[in-house]
Write a protein that binds this DNA or RNA. Structure first.
Length: 744
DNA sequence: AGCACGCCGACT
DNA sequence: GTCGGCGTGCTC
C-alpha cells in the first residue's frame, strides 16, 4: 500500500510480460530510490504471484489505488538503452498493444520469464492448501537434488554472483529460490560460447554509381553527416541498383563513426541483403531475426549493444536493435505488407523505423520499385524526399510484358506453353508464379453439388496431392482426400481453382525432361529449405521454378529470362482496400524477376482483367500511372493515405455471444462518432471469413483525419468496453489493428 | 497469458 | 467425501 508522506512519493511505470493493455504502477521504496531507473528489471508482486518487469518511466503520481512496492531491483545497470526503451513505449501506445508484448523484442526472453527463472518458496511456507501447482512441482523436483546447486544454477541464469543473490534473498525475506526443470536443463547444457566474429570478406567489389544513384547518395548524405531526421523515398524500378545506394550511404555513415540498421521484409531477403552488403563494404553485418535460437539471438544482440557491430540487418524486429550510435536506417521494399506483424504486437517495422529516425534525429531511407500509396503520397506532398531511378543498371531493358487470357482447361495456357518450350531449348530458366498452393481450391460433387468445407472455419478445403489430404489453409485442419461424395457416393468429384501443385503437375506432363522445383509454404517448412531451393536455381540445377508469392520478393535470379504469372488477377477480387495495390505490386515484382542477367527478360501474364488499371500499369512498369488511377479512388471512398485507419477485431466463441456484444459496441461507437466530427465508423460487420477456428469474427473500421483523433476514438472505445465485466462481454475478445495492412 | 477460485457432476 | 472440468475474475 502507498503510504502518505510529506515528501513526493516516487512511482515506477513497469512493463509486465503479459498480454495486458497498459503499464503497471509500483511504488519505489526509499532504499531503492537511486536503484530504480528506466531500463532496469525489477521483481514485483503480480496478483498472487511474482513477475519480472522492466521499468519504463519514473513518475510522482499514480492513477490507481492499491499500489504495491517493488520487491527488488534485479539489475545494476539498465539492460535496455534509453532510445530503444522509448521506442518500445511509443509503439505500445501507438498500436494499442500491451507494452509487455514488446518486451521480448528488447530484452532476451528468458530474462523476463519469472516462471522459468524462479519460483519462490514463500508459496510453500504459507498454508499448504494455497500452494500453487507450479511451486509444488518444483519443490518435488528439487527436494531430490542437492540444495546448494540451486543457488549456483540460479546465479548462472540471472547473471548474478552468489553474493548478490544472498542480498536479494535476505532483503525480501525469501527463504529459498527454486529453479524449474527447463532452466536447470538449459543451464546444464550451457557450453563455452565463442565470441561472434566480424570477419571481413576477401571479395570486395567496388562499384561506380550511375548519375541517378549518385544523385540519391548526394541528397541523403548531408542528413547523415549533420544528423538530421528526414525520410527519403527511393523509387527505383526493379533491377535499378538500390542496393548500391544503400551500400554507399552505409559507407558514409560508418565513416563518421555511426552505425546502420537495414530492414528487409523477410528473413531470406535479410540474409541476401547481408551478403550483398558484405561484398560492397568489406564488413560482415550482424543478421538478427526471430527465427534463431534464443541463445544465438542473445549472443548477437550483445555484440550489437557492445558497439562492436556497426551494421545490423534483419526483418522487422531488427528495428529495435540496441545500437547506440545509430546514424541511418534503411527499409528495403518498404511497401511490403509483411512489415506489419499480423499477431500481437501488431506493429509496422517501417513506421517504427521512421519513428526511430525522428527520435534519434537521423535520416531514414525507404526503398521500393512499387512504393506504398502512403509513402508516395507523403513524397508528393513534400514531406519525404523523392529520389527516382528510372533505368535498370548496365543499360538492361525492362522486360517485355504480354497479356493473355487464361486457358479454360489448363493452368499453363498456349502462349505460356510455347514460351516455356523456347526457353528450355535455349537452356534459359523460367519462373512461374501462382498465387495459391495446393492442387485444387474447391472440390465439389458433380452429381449433388456437395462442397467440402472446413469444420472449424467458413472456408472450403484445399486438395493437396502430395499429402493426399484436404486441408484448411487458415486453421490447419486436415482430412484424407475423398474418393467418393459423402452425401451421394458419386465418384465424380469436380476440382476447380488450381494452385502450385496443379502447375507442377502440368509442367511434369508437358515437359517431362525439365528439372522443376516448387517453392511454397508446403515445400519450405524445414529450416533453410527455401535457401536451398534458391541456391539450386542459382546453380542452374533447376530449369523451372514454380512458386507462390514468396518467389516474387526481391530475389535476384540472373538466369531467369521468362516469368509467367498464372491467374495474376485473383488477388484483385479480394474484398480489401489494398487489393488493387497488391495486385499491381505482385505483377510488377514477379515481372521484375525476369531479365536480371545478361539476356533480356520476358513476362507473360494470364489474366481476365487486362483493362484494370493495376494490371495495365504493371504491364507498362508505370507506378505513376497506377498511383494516378488508384489515389483518387482511395480519396473518394476515404481510405489511406487520405485518412488514418484502425480496425477493431471482435472475436467471440459463439454467434450469440458475439451478437450480444456487438449491440453494446454499436451504442458505444455511435456515441463516439457523435462526439467528434472527424471520426467515421463503419460496422461492426461480419468479417470476410466469419468463422475461424470455431470462433466468430466481426470488424469495425474507424477512420479519422489524423492519428491523434483516431487514437482518441480507439481509446474511448477501449475505455468503455474494458469497463464491462467478463459476463457482460460474454468472453468476447477485442483487439485493435492500427494502420492495418488489410481490413480482412 | 496464466492462475486460482468456485460451482458443478461423477466417482471411490 | 473429494477429484477434476470449465466458466469467471483478476493482475498496479
Amino acid at each position: 500500500m502507498a503510504k502518505r508522506t510529506n515528501k513526493k512519493e516516487t512511482f515506477a511505470k513497469v512493463m509486465i510480460p503479459r498480454p495486458l493493455r497498459g503499464f503497471f504502477t509500483y511504488s519505489v521504496p526509499d532504499e531503492m530510490q537511486n536503484g530504480v531507473v528506466p531500463g532496469k528489471r525489477v521483481l514485483v508482486s503480480f496478483g498472487p504471484r511474482k513477475a519480472i518487469g522492466l521499468v519504463a518511466e519514473i513518475t510522482h503520481h499514480a492513477e490507481v489505488k492499491n499500489i504495491k512496492p517493488i520487491i527488488q531491483v534485479i539489475d545494476d545497470a539498465p539492460v535496455v538503452a534509453p532510445s530503444v526503451l522509448k521506442l518500445a513505449v511509443w509503439a505500445a501506445e501507438h498500436y494499442f498493444e500491451p507494452p509487455g508484448e514488446f518486451l521480448p523484442l528488447i530484452v532476451p526472453r528468458d530474462k523476463i520469464e519469472v516462471d522459468t527463472v524462479v519460483a519462490i518458496h514463500e508459496d510453500l511456507t504459507e498454508k499448504p492448501e494455497t500452494r500453487s501447482k507450479a511451486a509444488l512441482e518444483i519443490y518435488d523436483l528439487l527436494e531430490k537434488k542437492g540444495g546448494e546447486r540451486r543457488l549456483s544454477l540460479l546465479s548462472a541464469d540471472l547473471g548474478k554472483t552468489q553474493k548478490d543473490l544472498g542480498k536479494i534473498l535476505s532483503g525480501v525475506t525469501l527463504k529459498k529460490f527454486f529453479i524449474t526443470r527447463q532452466v536447470a536443463r538449459r543451464v546444464a547444457s550451457r557450453g563455452n560460447t565463442r565470441p561472434y566474429s566480424l570477419a571481413t570478406s576477401q571479395k570486395y567489389e567496388p562499384v561506380t554509381l550511375t548519375d541517378d544513384q549518385q544523385k540519391a547518395v548526394d541528397t541523403i548524405t548531408p542528413y547523415i553527416e549533420s544528423k538530421k531526421f528526414k525520410v527519403n523515398l527511393i523509387h527505383g524500378v526493379t533491377g535499378s541498383g538500390k542496393t548500391e545506394i544503400y551500400a554507399s550511404l552505409a559507407k558514409k555513415t560508418l565513416a563518421i563513426g555511426k552505425s546502420v540498421i537495414f530492414l528487409a521484409p523477410e528473413i531470406a531477403l535479410a540474409d541476401a541483403m547481408s551478403r550483398r552488403l558484405e561484398r560492397r563494404l568489406n564488413i560482415k553485418p550482424v543478421v538478427i531475426h526471430s527465427d534463431m535460437t534464443p541463445k544465438e539471438r542473445e549472443k548477437r544482440l550483445s555484440v550489437i549493444s557492445s558497439g562492436e557491430a556497426k551494421i545490423v540487418v534483419g526483418a522487422r524486429s531488427a528495428v529495435f536493435a540496441p545500437l547506440e550510435d545509430l546514424g541511418l536506417i534503411v527499409v528495403d521494399e518498404e511497401h511490403d505488407g509483411s512489415y506489419k506483424q499480423d499477431t500481437s504486437p501488431r506493429y509496422n517495422g517501417r513506421d517504427v523505423a521512421i519513428k526511430r529516425g525522428a527520435m534519434e534525429n537521423i535520416p531514414v531511407v525507404l526503398g521500393a520499385a512499387t512504393p506504398s500509396l502512403e509513402s508516395y503520397y507523403h513524397a508528393l506532398a513534400g514531406k519525404y524526399n523523392l529520389l527516382e531511378l528510372k533505368h535498370r543498371i548496365d543499360g538492361r531493358s525492362m522486360p517485355e510484358v504480354m497479356l493473355v487470357k487464361p486457358d479454360k482447361d489448363w493452368e499453363i495456357g498456349e502462349k505460356l506453353h510455347s514460351a516455356i518450350k523456347t526457353c528450355l531449348e535455349k537452356k534459359e530458366q523460367i519462373l512461374l508464379f501462382i498465387n495459391r498452393r495446393g492442387l485444387a481450391r474447391h472440390i465439389q460433387c458433380s452429381l449433388c453439388g456437395y462442397t467440402f468445407e472446413c469444420r472449424n472455419c467458413s472456408l472450403s478445403l484445399v486438395f493437396h496431392m502430395n499429402s493426399k489430404t484436404l486441408s484448411c489453409h487458415t486453421c490447419g485442419y486436415e482430412e484424407p482426400a475423398p474418393t467418393v461424395c459423402p452425401d451421394c457416393a458419386s465418384t465424380d468429384l469436380w476440382m476447380g481453382g488450381g494452385g502450385s501443385e496443379k502447375v507442377e503437375r502440368e509442367i511434369a506432363d508437358m515437359f517431362p525432361n525439365a528439372r522443376v522445383a516448387r517453392m511454397d509454404k508446403d515445400t519450405t517448412v524445414k529450416k533453410r529449405s527455401s535457401a536451398k531451393i534458391l541456391e539450386s536455381v542459382e546453380n542452374r540445377e533447376v530449369d523451372i521454378l514454380i512458386g507462390t508469392q514468396m518467389v516474387t520478393k526481391g530475389h535476384d535470379f540472373p538466369g531467369i529470362t521468362l516469368v509467367g504469372a498464372i491467374n495474376a488477377d485473383n488477388t484483385l477480387h479480394i474484398p480489401d482496400f489494398r487489393a488493387s495495390e497488391r495486385t499491381f505490386q505482385l505483377i510488377t515484382q514477379a515481372g521484375g524477376r525476369a531479365g536480371r542477367g545478361d539476356s533480356a527478360g520476358r513476362v507473360i501474364i494470364q489474366t481476365l482483367s487486362a483493362g484494370h488499371h493495376s494490371v495495365e500499369s504493371a504491364v507498362k512498369h508505370d507506378f505513376k500511372a497506377f498511383y494516378a488511377a488508384e489515389a483518387p479512388l482511395r480519396k473518394a471512398v476515404g481510405y489511406p493515405p487520405y485518412v488514418r485507419l484502425a480496425v477493431i477485431r471482435i472475436d467471440a466463441v459463439s454467434e450469440n455471444k458475439g451478437e450480444h456484444f456487438i449491440s453494446r459496441a454499436r451504442r458505444i461507437l455511435g456515441r463516439i462518432e457523435s462526439e467528434s466530427p472527424d471520426i467515421y465508423i463503419l460496422g461492426p460487420v461480419e468479417a470476410v471469413v466469419f468463422k475461424v477456428r470455431n470462433r466468430y469474427h466481426w470488424r469495425v473500421l474507424i477512420k479519422a483525419k489524423n492519428h491523434s483523433t483516431l487514437s482518441w476514438g480507439v481509446r474511448r472505445f477501449f475505455g468503455e468496453t474494458d469497463e464491462l465485466s467478463y459476463a457482460e462481454r460474454g468472453g468476447v475478445v477485442v483487439h485493435c489493428d492500427m494502420d492495418p495492412a488489410s481490413v480482412m
